[in-house]
Simulated scan of single mutants.
Amino acid sequence: MVTTPGGPALGEPAPPAQVQVLVVEDEPAIATAIAHRMRAEGWQVEIAADGLAAVAAAARLRPDVIVLDVMLPGIDGLEVCRRVQAERPVPVIMLTARDDETDMLVGLGVGADDYMTKPFSMRELLARTKALLRRVERSVQLAGTAPADPAITLGDVSIDRGQRRVSRAGEPVHLTPTEFDLLVTLALNPRTVLTRERLLAEVWDWIDASGTRTVDSHVKALRRKLGADLIRTVHGVGYAFEPAEG
C-alpha cells in the first residue's frame, strides 16, 4: 500500500480536518475549563488572554470558531471581533458578564453569531459551538450546490442565497451569517408566524428554551439593518416576515 509521508494511503479519503478553536478569556480558570472541555472533543484549542494577543492569534491560526469574552485587557472583545471579522469572517460566540440586551446587540452588530451570559453551562457552550460549526459547514455545502436562480424577492427586499447578499430598495445590507440565515428562514415562510423554538431549531440547529432571547436579539439586529416594518412580533409566539405589498 502506497502512502504519502504523514498522510493517508493513496486512494483513501483524507481524515476530517481537526476543528481549531481560539478561546479568548483573561480569567485563567474559565479559559482552562473551556479549553479542557473542548480538547476532550478532539479539537485543537489555543488560549489568548488579552485583546491584542487574540487578534494576532486569529490571524495566525485562522480558527474555525472563536469563543470571545467581552471584557479583556488592552482592547475589548467588541473591538477584537470587529478587527477579526474585517480580516476574515469567522464564527464567534461572545461571553459577557452583563445580561444587558444593548451590549448583546452591539456584539451582534460587530459580527458575533451568538452570545452567552456568565455564569454559563459548559455543556450549553459546547452544544452551541457544535451547532454553530454545523451551520457553517451546511452553508459551505449549500453554496457549492446553489440553484441557478436562488434569489428570493419579496416586496423591495432581495435575497441572493447563492452569493449570500441582501438588498432593500436596491441598497445593499450587510448581515452576519446568522442574521442572513434567520432572514432566509423567515422569508421562505412569508406572513407565517414562526415560533422562537422553530427558529432555534432551523437557524441555530439546537433546541433550548434558554435560547429564545438569542432569537429576539437577532430579530432586533435585523430590524435595525432592514427596517422595523418587515418583521412582525406575535407576542408569546414568535415572528413573521411581512414584506411590503408590491
Score class of each variant (00 low, 15 high):
residue 57 A to W: 04
residue 179 E to G: 15
residue 44 Q to V: 09
residue 238 G to A: 08
residue 3 T to L: 06
residue 30 I to P: 00
residue 245 E to S: 14
residue 205 D to I: 02
residue 41 E to V: 07
residue 130 K to V: 08
residue 64 D to F: 07
residue 1 M to Y: 07
residue 193 V to G: 01
residue 82 R to D: 06
residue 115 Y to A: 00
residue 51 G to P: 03
residue 41 E to I: 10
residue 107 G to E: 06
residue 71 M to I: 11
residue 160 D to A: 10
residue 93 I to T: 08
residue 82 R to A: 13
residue 108 L to D: 02
residue 99 D to M: 02
residue 22 L to I: 06
residue 86 A to E: 12
residue 246 G to W: 13
residue 200 L to D: 02
residue 46 E to Y: 05
residue 98 R to I: 05
residue 240 A to K: 09
residue 204 W to A: 01
residue 238 G to P: 08
residue 89 P to N: 05
residue 219 V to T: 01
residue 35 A to W: 07
residue 73 P to S: 06
residue 225 K to P: 00
residue 88 R to P: 10
residue 28 P to E: 05
residue 209 A to R: 00
residue 1 M to E: 05
residue 172 P to E: 15
residue 174 H to D: 12
residue 71 M to L: 12
residue 139 S to P: 01
residue 44 Q to S: 15
residue 29 A to F: 08
residue 152 I to P: 08
residue 29 A to G: 00
residue 72 L to F: 08
residue 70 V to T: 11
residue 189 N to C: 03
residue 119 P to F: 00
residue 103 D to T: 07
residue 68 L to T: 09
residue 81 C to Q: 02
residue 121 S to N: 14
residue 6 G to D: 07
residue 242 E to G: 05
residue 145 T to K: 06
residue 154 L to I: 13
residue 235 H to V: 14
residue 155 G to M: 10
residue 152 I to A: 12
residue 95 L to P: 01
residue 218 H to G: 04
residue 203 V to W: 00
residue 18 Q to K: 14
residue 229 D to G: 10
residue 163 Q to E: 13
residue 210 S to Y: 02
residue 44 Q to D: 15
residue 125 L to C: 08
residue 91 P to S: 13
residue 104 M to V: 14
residue 208 D to V: 01
residue 202 E to N: 12
residue 90 V to D: 06
residue 137 E to K: 10
residue 150 P to K: 08
residue 212 T to A: 09
residue 6 G to V: 01
residue 152 I to F: 13
residue 138 R to D: 09
residue 214 T to C: 11
residue 228 A to I: 05
residue 155 G to W: 11
residue 99 D to Y: 05
residue 244 A to F: 11
residue 28 P to A: 02
residue 66 I to A: 04
residue 242 E to M: 15
residue 152 I to N: 10
residue 58 A to H: 05
residue 136 V to N: 03
residue 55 V to M: 12
residue 169 A to S: 14
residue 56 A to R: 15
residue 180 F to H: 14
residue 209 A to N: 09
residue 106 V to N: 01
residue 198 R to T: 12
residue 243 P to L: 08
residue 131 A to N: 10
residue 12 E to Y: 06
residue 46 E to I: 07
residue 2 V to S: 04
residue 46 E to D: 15
residue 124 E to F: 07
residue 235 H to A: 12
residue 85 Q to W: 04
residue 178 T to S: 14
residue 104 M to F: 01
residue 30 I to D: 00
residue 209 A to E: 15
residue 64 D to M: 12
residue 95 L to W: 02
residue 32 T to F: 05
residue 181 D to N: 12
residue 161 R to A: 08
residue 169 A to C: 11
residue 213 R to N: 07
residue 219 V to C: 03
residue 198 R to D: 11
residue 108 L to P: 04
residue 8 P to E: 09
